[in-house]
């Protein structure tokens, strides 16, 4: 049968759900081994964080999409958590191979890393379901439906109070970690990346400015480029 936008969307959703059926809603044995290898076991903090973020996500999703869609929010979050575990495991395997270490205590106890990774997983889930597009983008098929456009990127950053600059850090590793991501998903993440690089990371409250200041004070003084260049 001919490909239609709806058929394409259904295929993407089926593919995502199919890929995640085998990934459990709990950390796998391999992931648990990484947690146990840490100097400080991150498991309890991670689970508590997930509960807090689930409440935040469900509440804000309900406000944006409507109270009758609360169950949808819970389903999206559950799928996002499966993807979060799957990608985390792939990232750690790749880091173990690259660095020849098995103790990722610092990374796995970094709340910003977990929040960014989960936000990216949820962005992928919502983009697949067509709920997150871009208000100014050219491919928002839900344009005109304010309920759906309310959860478009960077909505997730506001929900988790996450700096765009920190979300940006996980995008490339996320794409590398999952070669089964659809082309549309990769394209969506790339558009998020470009939006951050071109606009969101440069807003006044961005942590980027403090980092640039620290870099400058740390001795890495370079000639400031002229406005023309």
């Amino acid at each position: 049968p001919p490909q239609t936008p709806i058929r394409a969307a259904m295929t993407s959703i089926q593919q995502l759900r199919g890929d995640l059926i085998s990934s459990g809603d709990q950390p796998s044995t391999t992931l648990n081994t990484y947690f146990k290898n840490c100097t400080v076991d991150p498991t309890q903090n991670m689970l508590t964080r997930l509960e807090t973020l689930e409440q935040l996500f469900s509440q804000r999703f309900g406000q944006a999409v409507g109270p009758r869609c609360l169950i949808l929010g819970k389903q999206r979050f559950a799928l996002g958590v499966r993807l979060y575990y799957k990608i985390m495991e792939a990232m750690l395997k790749s880091e173990e191979k690259r660095l020849s270490v098995q103790n990722f205590s610092k990374l796995l106890n970094d709340a910003t890393f977990h929040t960014s990774l989960l936000a990216c997983a949820l962005e992928v889930v919502m983009a697949t379901y067509g709920e997150s597009s871009f208000k100014t983008g050219g491919y928002n098929h839900a344009a005109g439906d304010s309920a759906e456009t309310d959860v478009c990127f960077p909505w997730i950053l506001h929900v988790f109070n996450l700096a765009a600059f920190d979300f940006y850090k996980v995008i490339e590793s996320f794409i590398k970690a999952d070669p089964t991501l659809s082309k549309d998903t990769v394209k969506h993440l790339e558009t998020c990346e470009n939006l951050i690089m071109e606009r969101i990371a440069w807003r006044t409250d961005s942590p980027l400015f403090e980092l640039l200041k620290q870099e400058h004070e740390g001795g890495a003084v370079e000639q400031v480029e002229t406005p023309a260049s």
Binding site: L107, K169, E190
Partner: peptide, 21 residues
């Protein structure tokens, strides 16, 4: 034919990006 442009060098990964090394 959409291909993501990978910008990270081979010696960079998520650990470095979150200042873990």
């Amino acid at each position: 034919n959409h291909n993501y442009h990978f910008g990270l060098e081979d010696h960079e990964g998520i650990s470095e990006l979150f200042d873990c090394d």
